[in-house]
Amino acid sequence: MKLSDKIIIEQENLIIVEGMDDENFISVLLNYLDIENVEIVNIEGNNFRDYVPEIGKITGFDKVKILIIISDADNNANTAFNRIKRSIEQIEDYDLIPPNNRNTFNTERPMVGIYIITKGDSEEGMLEDLCLETIKHNNVMECVDSFSDCISNLGIELRNPAKSKCQTFLSAMPESVPHIGIAAQRGFWELNSEALDELKLFLSNLKS
């Protein structure tokens, strides 16, 4: 049982993510990797720039030995990485040193790692792209792609193609789930996909 009904850090490993989908997805992946004792805090409704500099103020942060921040690349992976790097340097009460490169850790203590989610090898992307990569060999994806192409042919630009494809894919699942994080819990994304290899390798640093 948690010591408090508020957000409190009770584990030595802390992962900070952008929202509930990321929290659920990462939590399922950690479970798949047999990694326990990880606290995940999602900053939903906030941005890393405002939130991260103050995380040292959450009760229990003093026990953190490994800190990981996972973010979407959005339009530019480097911009996303640098923004998080700066926010780590600004953490009050603790001297934490961010890694020099994305998807890596520093060599200091506590360990700090930053992972930026991209679409394959590109410099942009989001969690939805990663989810789609895991199921690219799934037969349903042929239909999903034709649907997107068909909409495109009508001259309609999809507001967010990755989100749209995820929703279309999920609509073919035996149970209706509105969120990609919950879809992860239901096992609709293929966790053994090589698309997740880099992220899995990164998270394996949490294995003591």
Partner: peptide
């Protein structure tokens, strides 16, 4: 160690539902 909260830190911590005790 003493972790300090200014009024602005407190405002955000309470808003974000952080445990601060």
């Amino acid at each position: 160690k003493a972790i300090k909260y200014t009024a602005s830190n407190l405002e955000k911590a309470l808003e974000r539902d952080w445990e601060i005790r």
